[in-house]
């Protein structure tokens, strides 16, 4: 049987600063090929987690496994398989983009002749041959950060708030770039953000962190299903009600839950008609509810009120 390998796995990962737990017994799992969105408010512990994943800060306790290996036992070997961009990427501003990438290429030992050119082409910066990085806009620096992270053909890309400070066009370009990298290069991507819509449009799995704790880890497909709008009927005979939905209205997008609970995901707004047919067929309708939860409401509830951000 085909088994999806775990690229990132943390076990009870904890970081304590003084009295404050910045990351608290965090257990996350990222599988190969996923775009994993790491969502949380500012100060929730996202960057601290990422810095621990990259060995920049040492955990107070807990384990980090990357590619199935303990990070601290093969730190160098593991990091060579990762490309990363932590917050706003830093560059030597007195150098050009090529010269900045040459520094990485030399140290990593990238011998492919046109690797730098290729990386710059991916982020569309290959025409900026003479411009010093000090004169780059924030968006250009973010793109150059991605180019640098891709230079050595990593299997895992860790990006911390890659759209921070970008204008709407820049955000869209960054999103497209990340998605194409995942698709075309089959890179597993771990991306953090405090913007729900960003993660929603980008990721296929998501972990929500709040006050250092992981509140939920879920696939977006399941989440959307869970948060779809629906009509909920509590009826005396759910079998008969289900048959009526199919035969009378041609509805197949429904779910029967326990205790006579039926959720209908189509025909929203037709609760009156549905109710009438149920009653005419001797089904007692005990309750009708129109769900109005959307993803934002769901998150607000999860993190205890307020919006993410």
């Amino acid at each position: 049987m085909f088994q999806i390998s775990e690229i990132i796995k943390t076990t009870n990962l904890t970081k304590v600063y003084g009295q404050q737990k910045s990351v608290d017994h965090l257990n996350i799992t990222v599988n190969q090929g996923e775009i994993y969105g790491f969502l949380g408010r500012n100060g929730a512990g996202k960057t601290t987690t990422i810095r621990m994943l990259l060995g920049l800060i040492k955990p107070t306790s807990g384990q980090i496994e990357l590619f199935g290996e303990n990070l601290f036992k093969n730190h160098k070997g593991i990091l060579r398989r990762i490309g990363s961009m932590v917050e706003v990427p830093g560059f030597y501003e007195n150098l050009t983009a090529r010269e900045n990438l040459l520094i990485n290429a030399k140290i990593i030992g990238v011998h492919k002749k046109n690797a730098i050119e290729e990386a710059l082409e991916i982020v569309d910066l290959h025409h900026e041959t003479k411009k010093l990085v000090g004169k780059y806009s924030l968006g250009m620096k973010q793109r150059l950060g991605i180019a640098r992270a891709l230079l050595h053909y990593p299997e895992l890309l860790i990006l911390d708030e890659p759209t921070n400070g970008l204008d709407p066009i820049g955000i869209k370009e960054m999103r497209n770039l990340i998605q194409s990298l995942a698709k075309e290069r089959n890179i597993t991507i771990f991306v953090s953000s405090h913007i729900l819509s960003e993660i929603e449009q980008l990721a296929d799995h998501m972990g929500i962190i709040h006050e250092g704790k992981l509140l939920e880890e879920i696939a977006f497909e399941s989440l959307r299903k869970r948060n779809r709008k629906y009509l909920e009927f509590q009826v005396s005979n759910d079998n008969k009600a289900a048959m009526l939905l199919e035969s009378h209205f041609g509805i197949s997008d429904y779910e029967v839950h326990d205790e006579g609970n039926i959720r209908v995901y189509s025909h929203l707004g037709s609760q009156g008609k549905l109710n009438k047919v149920f009653v005419e067929n001797d089904i007692d309708v005990l309750k009708i509810k129109v769900s109005e939860d959307n993803l934002e409401d769901y998150f607000a509830k999860l993190v205890g009120g307020g919006a993410i951000g």
Binding site: G55, L56, R80, I82, S84, V86, P89, Y92, E93
Partner: peptide
């Protein structure tokens, strides 16, 4: 300068020991 230009974390994650 590795701190002020924010380049240290890049170097250490390449990784440079």
């Amino acid at each position: 300068r590795e701190y002020t230009e924010n380049t240290l974390k890049n170097l250490l994650t390449i990784p440079v020991s």
